[in-house]
Design a protein around this nucleic acid. Structure first.
Lengths: 328, 328
DNA sequence: GTGAAAGCGCTAACAC
DNA sequence: GTGTTAGCGCTTTCAC
């Protein structure tokens, strides 16, 4: 900028005015400045600007996994909202590792993001206390945070799972298995709770073998599913706790002779074309992201009221697999 | 940092030393500094650090659409590489809009990212000339850039499509339709070229109605597919130009009485469970991302040789739909 | 309408 | 081992 000023034969502040579109510069002066800018290939250095102004017009998004299709629409919704506010997006995956979540969030804070949207992997967000105190807005999405008062947007996992399992019960099933993500993950625990609630309110006992929570690797899910589907206590229906689990369960069921009913949490691309088409409890990932961004920008605009907690409804989509009767 | 120094009763530089883990500080002094840091909730301001050091340890990734599952693994691979180098990631979607790509790329440059990985939406990247000259590394991925010499990583779209279509021809098809993305998108044009090459080398004429390129909306694809599948010249097989097109084509074919062979470019989740399972030409999206990141960090490490252009091989995955014989 | 000077928070260079 | 000074490139303030 100094060079531009020298070349245009004007003061530093005049260049600044032109670059930032402020008024109070003659047309002729502005022309000279623009010429110098073009000739020198000058671009404003936002690091210096940020240092001076305080606000960075950027927000940080910490997800669990950028590659998981569930987070695609969520990210995109956050990005669109950020764009509308003129903010840029830092992005990172925690890979379900609390330490990695922390590193990312703090790295974003060190870059002085105005706000943070986090899908928690950690169960202790006290580390964000100083940041929040310093004015960084924080919103948790998909899962609640801990030890930090902050706006939170979740799906109603409990009700979604409960209704999905009740749907299987309504179609005559009495022995239903639940395959979920690791129990320390809030959504997995909530969905399991929904399953138990539905079973309990129908007066059904849950055999120990009918619930299996753990990593969503195909091997683990396959083993547990096969176990539930065999023996004298074999289940006639399965409820799968998320999109990755469902994908593996569908593969297991495709290899069976008898039909087994299935309701999956999360929708899947092409689920309607499988045989049978897969009944799901769908979340609105884009709406999760949109809502989280709205809460964040509300804070950045100055809102100081108590932390909000929103639970968005899920939607049961009946396609066939959840309406199969129990096979003898 | 000044406050920390005051509180700990030490000089500014000593605090800087502690914060950056440099040697040459007594244990006792370090303890006092750390205490002051904790008490004040101090966190280093990276904007100031960046301003001073030049390098920002961040890179910008401009994709077409964050929500497209194809870009998930690509982003994740870039993120993992960046993480290994200690760099943070800015992320944005161009939504196939050249102006938006430009805005994003320049906004990232204003933040002084060390490098840029771009899935081009624009067909003129001369706007990056000053940035490149100023030392910002640029890598194009998935599609080539224009009017800017830069490293480029592509899939071998031509060969992939040609081999996919040749596969259909080998199974007896003579009338094959091609449904692709808008022709101004490089990958769409290359895949069409592959289709034409396969048809030509088998001595087959291509009727005007057998190729349809345009937006990948379900409506457009459905209309074009239905047209190709009817009339006296009806095709017996389809080649679909990307994952979104394939999803719609599969739905169209599911509603038909007669079997129609299908090979799709890009793999799909659960493609193996459809009826028939979908034969695809698969790209390795993660490898595209990994390779692009490797090229970028090579430049950042100082490589000054001519721009590389790499084409990664695709893989034909035979699952059933591509092996169906022509129906009379 | 324009410019000079101060300073944002940090690090590099060089004292002590 | 530790502190002092200058300055990264910009915006703010205030004087002209």
């Amino acid at each position: 900028m100094k060079d531009v000023a020298a070349r245009a034969g004007v003061g530093l502040k005049t260049v600044s005015r032109v670059v930032n579109g402020e008024s109070g510069v003659t047309e002729e002066t502005e022309r000279r400045v623009r010429e110098a800018i073009a000739a020198l290939g000058f671009r404003r250095n936002d690091s210096a600007r940020i240092l001076r102004k305080g606000r960075t017009a950027s927000i940080g998004l910490v997800l669990e996994d950028l590659a998981d299709p569930f987070y695609g629409p969520l990210s995109r919704a956050v990005e669109d909202a950020a764009r509308a506010e003129g903010a840029l997006l830092f992005h990172g995956s925690s890979a379900e590792d609390p330490e990695r979540e922390r590193e990312l969030a703090l790295a974003f804070c060190a870059r002085r993001v105005d706000g943070l949207i986090i899908v928690p992997a950690s169960d202790d967000h006290a580390y964000l206390e100083p940041e929040a105190a310093a004015g960084t807005a924080v919103v948790f999405v998909d899962r609640p945070g801990s030890r930090l008062e902050a706006d939170t947007v979740l799906s109603d996992n409990f009700t979604g799972a409960r209704d999905g399992v009740a749907h299987l019960i309504a179609h005559g099933h009495r022995r239903i298995g639940f395959l979920g993500d690791a129990p320390r993950i809030h959504t997995a625990a909530e969905r399991l709770r929904g399953y138990r609630a539905a079973m309990a309110s129908a007066g059904l006992e849950v055999a120990p073998d009918w619930t299996a929570l753990g990593p969503t690797t195909p091997e683990r899910v396959r083993t547990d599913a096969v176990r539930m589907l065999s023996g004298p206590q074999a289940v006639t229906a399965l409820f799968s706790g998320n999109n990755r689990v469902t994908a593996t369960v569908v593969r297991v069921l495709a290899g069976l002779r008898r039909p087994v009913a299935l309701v999956g949490f999360d929708d899947l691309e092409l689920a309607d074309l499988l045989d049978p088409p897969v009944t799901v409890v769908a979340q609105d990932a884009a709406r999760l992201g949109r809502t989280a961004a709205a809460l964040l920008f509300r804070r950045l605009a100055g809102a100081r009221d108590a932390a909000h907690r929103m639970e968005l409804p899920t939607r049961l989509i009946r396609r066939g697999s959840g309406e199969l009767p129990p096979s003898p």
